[in-house]
Amino acid sequence: MNLTAIAAIYRFEMGRTFRTIAQSIISPVLSTALYFIVFGTAIGSRIEQVEGVSYGAFIVPGLIMLTVLTQSLSNASFGIYFPKFIGTIYELLSAPASFLEITAGYVLAAATKALAIGLIILGTAFFFVDLTIAHPVWMLAFLVLTCLSFSLFGFIIGIWAQNFEQLQLIPLLAVTPLVFLGGAFYSITMLPPAWQTISLFNPVVYLISGFRWSFFGLADVALGWSVLAICGFTMACIAVIAWIFRTGWRLRS
């Protein structure tokens, strides 16, 4: 195991993050604060409570998920796309590092950054709403797993993308709608039965449901399904990445 290589990639990527620390943190925190004001305060004054939880608090897990998902995707996809774009990928390909090691370096860095931002937003949320976390360990576990799995997914997007448009395409076209429709701002039990059934095909529902359960002890779907869904997704991403490195798809000619 070339641990030195993993550490080198990780440190290099984190260096990039720290160079742009202001924009890395300010923009997600600012947009989340806006969500709190718009959804929590404006709409919350009408809805007040969802299943015994104040609406302002109810949307916190969804908001964190929204940010963490988009951050993981964009960090990881950009992290590997950039070397492809400027040509420095030659060094990764010629290094004595396995697919696992290269992926680990990039994905761990992307996930670390997303996790940090997720925690900062959680901290920010305490300024806006009264919040207690019922299962803090589960909460952290969900958060970490989500960061990891979506960083893996982002890594795949970064390898797949052949231009900047494609890099934005999947996050914009698939992930953001799935998160919005995944119960970030509502409980899917609030939907008509037909839409509830359709929602069950949205993988993000399982994520947000499980994460929200760790806060309030209430879930849209059984906890087991949430755990299974996120573990399955992680495995699928790892399998795809293993295949990419074995075949050299979009990396080696």
Partner: peptide, 10 residues
């Protein structure tokens, strides 16, 4: 430094 690390050298 990054290159050295990537190639597994301390």
């Amino acid at each position: 430094r990054f290159s050295r690390g990537l190639f597994g050298k301390p």
